[in-house]
Amino acid sequence: MIRPGLSRIVLPFAAVTLIWGTTWYVIKTQLGVVPPEWSVAYRFMGASFIMFAACALMRRPLRFPLAAHGFFMLLGVFQFAGNFNFVYQASQTVTSGLIAVVFALLVIPNALFARLFLKQPVSARFVVGAALGIAGVALLFERELGADGWSGPIAAGLGLTLVGVMFASVANVMQGTARARSYDMFGMLAWSMLYGALVDIAYAWAMRGPPVIAWTPLYLGGIFYLAAIASALAFVLYFNVIRLVGPAWAAYSGVFIPFIAMTISTLLEGYRWSPLAVAGAALAVVGLVIALRARRVPAGAAAAGGTTGRS
């Protein structure tokens, strides 16, 4: 078998990392006038439309058996509804960079769920790396939680982010199955995003009432970026990287994304680094690298350690 050209791996990997590294701050521009629930709904309404249009242009299959639609619906509920609604809620109180760091820990529940449902082993090395990663994140939040208290909005935002991570992890395990790989990637994403968007609309209407939108260039530009670039394009690129090199290697984007997000948060959100925060960031990265190296699996093997929940 001819090994894929380096550019087929490096360029999509770099693009996904850059896109998802900036996404966390763009989400902040969606908050304010428009309820976060409706912002999520608009994002995936747009993303699903783009994916269906892409399937039509490329003549990708869109007809699937009824059982496949049940799978797509569950994937949409976990990945494009539950996950993102919790993240958008958390973004109201937690800086974008810190949310990105917490999401980098996604590999931990991924591995635990993979052990439970896919019977994949968890090594002692992975446990050590996971523990270091959790300790690093705790240090990053030490100042915010110390000033705010565990009952304040920062703690609530952290809790919402962790719930979002769990939703994303369930979706990742689903994407790591042989069943998911048997479906055309474009068609699967189109239907999953549509089902997720329908759930988002129902949830937004129930929680916030009729649709609200801000007709400003900043808001509408953010919706376009999140729907077209961060959702439709980025998920296609990332899934393709997984199919070329395997999910474990692809998961290294989760190590680099927080650096981009934290840099943006420092420049644009006024995040201030303390010595403990610096130590926490370093510890989290070391832990994640150790954990990811322990989760290495062959390309094409069923593994849940590499798909992100990204945003």
Rank of each mutant, 00 (worst) to 15 (best):
V94A: 08
G270Q: 09
V236Q: 12
S151D: 01
Q120H: 06
Y42I: 04
V212A: 12
G136W: 09
V10E: 05
A54V: 15
A104C: 04
R181H: 11
W249N: 10
A197M: 04
G196M: 10
P109S: 06
I290G: 06
M166P: 01
M58N: 03
A279G: 14
V241E: 01
A206S: 13
I229W: 06
G164L: 08
G176T: 02
A230K: 08
A304W: 08
W205T: 09
L66Y: 04
V10Q: 05
A155T: 06
G129M: 11
L158V: 15
M58G: 02
R293M: 11
N172P: 00
P61A: 08
R60P: 05
V102I: 14
I257T: 10
W191A: 05
V127G: 01
F117N: 10
G21C: 02
Q30S: 11
T93N: 11
F84R: 01
R295E: 15
G280M: 06
W191K: 10
S7I: 10
Q89N: 05
Q79P: 04
A130Y: 11
L31V: 04
Y271L: 13
G21F: 02
A178G: 15
N110E: 07
V101S: 08
I2W: 00
A232P: 03
Y203E: 01
A299F: 03
M51C: 05
I223K: 05
A47L: 05
V137I: 13
V122P: 06
A206G: 12
P258M: 01
L226M: 15
N172K: 03
I223P: 04
G159D: 02
L276T: 03
S7P: 00
I134M: 14
Y225D: 13
L276R: 10
R243I: 01
L6W: 13
G32N: 09
V297T: 15
Y195V: 01
S96E: 05
V10P: 04
T161W: 09
L267V: 13
S151F: 03
G176F: 01
L62S: 09
R3H: 11
A299D: 03
T216H: 02
A114H: 08
M188Y: 03
A54T: 14
R143M: 02
F117A: 14
F64I: 09
S265D: 07
V163C: 12
I19N: 11
A131S: 12
W273N: 12
A279C: 10
P275R: 11
L6F: 12
A130P: 07
I260T: 08
A294T: 08
A251K: 02
A279P: 00
V127L: 15
A178W: 01
F113L: 15
V33C: 00
G152P: 05
L18T: 14
R296M: 14
V286T: 14
L66K: 11
G146F: 09
G254A: 06
L162R: 04
W24R: 09
M188W: 02
F80H: 11
V34M: 09
N172S: 15
I154F: 07
